[in-house]
Design a protein around this nucleic acid. Structure first.
Lengths: 244, 244
DNA sequence: ACATGCCATTGCAATATGCGCAACACATGC
DNA sequence: GCATGTGTTGCGCATATTGCAATGGCATGT
């Protein structure tokens, strides 16, 4: 393991929160200011960091571009996008596409509702595995060993009174999801938000993603979203078919 | 300049294109396989890279999350988003917000048109300074010294017959934009795409961003988009006011 | 105008680290 | 069973990285 690279990464992590002075960066790394400066100079030469007018250092645009390029190389978004837009057009609620990438479920696309309210989900960020519809939809389709592996690194945090915060409760829910083929978020991450979600498989039947229709409870309660499940499942199947 | 950090960055750059084997990474860096492996191990421990099931290496989700987090810390998006949605709701065309970040104009938000056609612009990626509406809107508001500085690093590539590919032609256009307060893209980057764009200033009057309404020529020719300029300018002003 | 303190930066020598090499383990193809 | 290629690790060494001291610039206070 390279400590020089670790330091560079720690610099980037610390800049992501907010721009920082050279002294702050040196303090965070526990190194001399000249060491921090040289690492920053290297990051800035490559575009991974940049220097603001007031002397502070910030994350650079090249890192942002690389992240976007990477998101674009994940298979699903271009292919899924027309389906998501069509689903969004028919219902107006927020639509999410989340993809299983390594050990995380990452939101890779999102169509905001016409309701004008911003959801917590952010493209590029992981979805909660145990407290989101897309997370549970994906978990329900994993082989037992892989499911154990993923959950071993997850703390079943109780975000609301509805959150399934024991492994037993989660397993029971996953069994229900397997049986009926779709998942729900019944105010499990945020009290006032609910959704229905469906898994998306590839041509070999492996789970790769999930799709969800999300709304504020005051706008569309869960019972209303459940009525949309047939359309959601049809959309998920259409995406699966196009995966080839 | 740290060669170890440079190597790590080169690894990330090469993975952004497509996942690669250890041997490929070592070849690209010109180092021994064990060197490449240790650098990859460090990147993977931090989430900047990840190991695929078939042994190849890819960009990691932590880098994607940091990029998204960085985008979110740029002032404008959360504040501008409701204005962009409202503008989009009224007209249905593609709306872009691009921000001046360092020496680049970066697309930071984008609402796709209801027309179902995907534009070339990508969030996180730079806009052409000389061949895009947002680029020219921003250039037109810069002090002369800063304008020269930015353009010195730009090749005025002729993308279409309409591209302004000489400094004289560009300066004349920027003078026109300054006079009337808004810019156009008249098929300058792509033949079949046009837009109108307006600059967004902060409370000290400095240019920070630009906003555009973009459409395919066959759907809405430039003359039709020009009719929307009053609404575009009003939206840009509303965003400026909220900047404080 | 001057003194002071703080921050950013660089040259240099010491050393801690990153590096390549050799060897090993494993998978694959013949 | 053998050859080949790839991924991986231990180890010794050369060098790249590091901290220190010095320098310069800038802001602040008197």
């Amino acid at each position: 393991m390279s400590q020089t690279v670790q330091r560079a990464i720690l610099i980037i992590e610390s800049l992501a929160a907010r721009p920082r002075t050279l002294g702050e960066v040196a303090d965070i790394l526990g190194v001399h200011r000249s060491t921090a400066l040289r690492l920053l100079q290297t990051l800035e030469a490559s575009g991974f960091a940049r220097r603001l007018g007031d002397g502070r250092h910030a994350v650079g645009t090249r890192l942002i571009a690389i992240a976007q390029q990477t998101l674009e190389t994940l298979d699903l978004r271009p292919l899924a996008s027309p389906h998501l837009r069509a689903l969004h057009g028919r219902h107006g609620h927020t639509i999410h596409l989340a993809q299983l990438i390594g050990d995380e479920v990452i939101y890779v696309d999102k169509l905001e509702s016409t309701e004008g309210v911003r959801m917590y989900s952010r493209i590029g960020r992981p979805a909660s595995l145990h407290a989101s519809g897309v997370g549970k939809a994906i978990l329900s389709c994993l082989p037992a060993g892989r499911l154990d592996e993923l959950l071993s690194g997850v703390e079943l945090t109780a975000h609301t009174a509805n959150t399934l915060s024991t492994r037993q409760a989660l397993d029971a829910e996953l069994a229900t999801i397997r049986e009926r083929g779709w998942a729900v978020d019944d105010g499990e991450f945020e009290d006032f938000t609910n959704c229905v979600a469906a898994p998306v498989r590839n041509s070999t039947g492996d789970i790769v993603a999930a799709l969800s229709i999300t709304s504020l409870r005051v706008i569309a309660p869960l019972t209303e979203l459940v009525d949309l499940v047939p359309d959601l499942l049809a959309t998920a199947r259409a995406i699966s078919r196009e995966l080839g």
